[in-house]
Design a binder for these strands. Structure first.
Lengths: 225, 225
DNA sequence: ATTTCGAGTGTAAAAGTAACACTATTTCTT
DNA sequence: AAGAAATAGTGTTACTTTTACACTCGAAAT
């Protein structure tokens, strides 16, 4: 019985985080310029090793916290990357996660101390190991997920204008949307609530601020956006 | 540098296979009644441990081959299951995969020797460890996948009738479909080819046999079914 | 010749999606 | 004070897609 396990090899298990942020009408990833080997000087995802006392999902949350100081972030598995030589140093199996964070919220000092930077998703540099594949898959999974459920509100501040929301959807879609049709669709979902607040920073006229009402969403027919 | 890895713990890494088959108008899973501990006597998925010289994906293919004798089977990752106590014997992280196999094709002797049985997906027994969660997630992932691409042809024999195809879609959907609308949609996709062959086993009149043309599918606009 | 059984076929209403351009409100400039 | 500038906001129509629905066809069995 003991042999049932001990005949088999054991592996380091890493987690790597594809961290999406939204600013300036564009999607960005938080990437590290590595200050240590393996891969010193290269761009990479934020990663870490799973420890004895934590689940794989918890390890991903911890790693995200170590970089950004954030908890309660929307995170989802992207997949397992388990090729034999993917990490040239040792055999490491890695689970990739994507996270959607509000770009106003994170701890800038922590991020700086890790040598991490926001990079526009359309101008990504070459990345360490198989991290580019991870990013590609994350983009796909994120897109599918965002179409099925309105998860992408995690990328916005609590209050946002419809122009911001539309440009987020355009960034995820990779294509422009018609303003009137978009607003018609927003009006149909009452989990996107208009508030009395007005944002005057982006236009002279000012734009109404909206918020995502999670409770209403949970009670709704789950109309995707 | 060496410490970069060696400070961290290592884990057994398993793969578990959710194996779908289609017969009698229903989806079935191939499950094992375990003949060994841990979990002797319980129903479980077919699983195995990742070895030094194989990727995680390859381990899943090997495990499926060991049970069914099949290669070149459609398989996709379902996700990583990495809770600390999920396997009470040892800390094991597992990657779940789903496979779609043609129920006429597998090696019956091998399957029997593993004490494996086809179980209707709507009448599943309690399963070992977190295998029920794996199955739940696999059902969701499989459904999404089948909607995006016509992967489910892997569940059918090379030649099939439209009635069979429709009942497969109904089983995946969990809901009945309108026969005329379904056939109209089939007619629109030329990667579903009508042949001159007639199947006389299911009706007196006989039904035309169709086949999936992968090449045409790859050249098509990827209309999902 | 008649029955039986699954295979196969078309049309019309309804819903959803896509295309399209101007007015409104406030601030800034002169 | 008037006009320019800049983003917010607003409806209608054509087109496409989806849904609902019931009978005939062809071969075998009796």
């Amino acid at each position: 019985m003991q042999e049932y396990y001990s005949l088999h090899p054991r592996f380091y298990h890493a987690v790597d985080c594809i961290i999406f942020g939204f600013s300036g009408g564009e999607l960005n990833l938080l990437l590290l310029k590595r200050k240590f080997d393996p891969g010193m000087g290269e761009w990479s995802l934020m990663g870490g090793f799973v420890q004895e006392d934590e689940s794989v999902d918890d390890a991903a949350k911890r790693v995200l916290f170590e970089l950004t100081g954030l908890t309660n972030v929307f995170m989802e598995q992207v997949g397992v990357f388990g090729k034999v030589g993917r990490d040239p140093g040792e055999r490491v199996i890695s689970t990739a996660y994507y996270a959607l964070i509000n770009i106003n919220d994170y701890d800038r000092q922590l991020v700086e101390s890790h040598n991490a930077h926001w990079i526009n998703i359309n101008e990504l540099p070459a990345l360490l190991f198989d991290h580019e594949q991870m990013v590609e898959r994350a983009k796909t999974v994120m897109k599918v997920q965002a179409e099925l459920q309105p998860t992408c509100f995690s990328l916005l501040p609590e209050y946002f204008t419809l122009t911001q929301l539309q440009s987020l959807y355009e960034a995820i879609n990779g294509a422009a949307l018609d303003k009137r049709n978009f607003r018609k669709r927003v009006a149909e979902r009452d989990f996107i609530e208009k508030t009395r607040l007005i944002d005057k920073t982006t236009s002279r006229r000012g734009a109404s601020l909206y918020r995502f009402n999670e409770e209403k969403y949970n009670n709704s027919q789950r109309l995707k956006i």
